Amino acid sequence: MNFSKLLCLVLVCSEPFGQVLAAEQTGETCTGTAGTTVTCKRKKDETVKLTIAGTANNPVRWKKGTTTISAQAAKYELDGDKNKILTILNLKEGDEETYTAEGTSPVEKFQVQVVDCLGGKTSEPAGLCQGKPGGSIKLGLSDDGSGTSLSWKKGTDTIAISGDKYGPVNEATLMIKNLDDADEKEFTGGPTGSEEKFSVQVADCFGATGTVQCQGKLNEALKLRISDAVSGSKVVWTKEEGVVPASSQKLGTKDEGLKFPSLAPADAGTYKATYGGNTVSFAVRIPDTKGTSESDTKKESTENGKDNSGGGGSSNSGTDQVNLDKGNGGGLSYSPALLVTVTLVHLLLQLAA
């Protein structure tokens, strides 16, 4: 490949990349730029409004990738003069795509990115990011540094590429997979001197106030955690009408988490976490894993009782069998056939007389 071809390839590949990085927005309203693709980064379950900056001579036709968006779709709202605003509701990962506003001159494009949490500058509180054990979360920079090189750190350690743990480590988003207790760290990302912070928390049940319902599974792990920032003394864990199981583990520098490595029936109950004048309750429930309800158990017990009562005895199939009726004060009871025979004999004797 000669130098001119190489230079052309570099320019073609870098142009859209530079445009995207140069125009990132994280507010609810994401405003376009004529002839440029802007990046609109928002958190899951939130809303983003793609707004055209230029003029439109005709009603704008919006496309997600190559698919035309219908105004009747429950996912979208079209507003403004000539449909210049496209609102995407309840953002999910499937909404990540390039959206094109056709009908503008020049055409405006929006690259929508969806993350679990956005970072905060080192001078601001860290962005809170919560996930469940074994799950994944996606961290996103609110400002990617306009194309400068960036990196990610877990605590003080620079994160290296790992196919089964981390996504790309040199982009404005970082996917953390297979979450575990060791991921409860402060992550930082971004260009040197302009890093953003993320406070990652991992648990099955989170709570800061009130009572949280937590359903676990027998013989499986369950982790409870304070989702608030704990300052001062450590969290005190107690159990109503009982004691905290000795098999449980307190996790975190302030005992923010309480983990049951393998749930037992006796672990069910309500646990209280007290810290800094606050109290959070976690109601731990363990459903029956045998698939047998109380009524089924009673039915089985009754059927077993019937089998046992007749065990080893012979069947009373004879028509002249006389049995002892225990329910009639120990008196004699006769089979119907024997009673008929006795009655007929009695009548014959009366006629013979």
Score class of each variant (00 low, 15 high):
T173D: 10
K154D: 01
E171K: 14
G189K: 03
D157K: 15
E184L: 11
C205S: 10
T188Q: 07
G145T: 14
S199H: 08
E171W: 09
V202D: 01
D164A: 08
S146M: 09
E196S: 00
F206Q: 11
S151M: 08
F187R: 05
V169Q: 13
V200Y: 04
K153W: 06
Y166D: 15
T156C: 06
E195G: 03
W152M: 02
T192P: 03
G147N: 01
D204M: 01
F198A: 00
K185T: 00
D183P: 09
G189F: 02
E186L: 07
I161W: 11
L174G: 12
S162W: 02
G147E: 03
S146L: 10
L179Q: 04
K153P: 11
S146A: 06
D157T: 15
Q201W: 02
S199L: 10
K154T: 04
G190Q: 05
A182C: 00
D183I: 06
P168W: 02
G193V: 14
T192C: 03
F198S: 02
I161C: 07
S146D: 13
T158D: 08
K177T: 13
S151W: 14
K165T: 15
T148P: 01
I159E: 10
G193S: 11
E171F: 11
S146E: 12
C205Y: 01
F198L: 05
S162N: 14
T173Q: 12
C205W: 03
S162F: 00
E171Y: 11
A182Y: 08
G189R: 03
D157N: 15
K185S: 00
T158Y: 11
T158P: 01
K165N: 13
I176L: 09
F198C: 02
P168E: 03
S162V: 06
M175S: 12
V169H: 12
L174W: 04
S199F: 00
G155I: 02
G207M: 10
L179I: 09
D181L: 04
S149D: 12
W152N: 10
K177G: 06
I176V: 15
Q201P: 13
A203R: 05
G207F: 01
E184P: 11
S151Y: 15
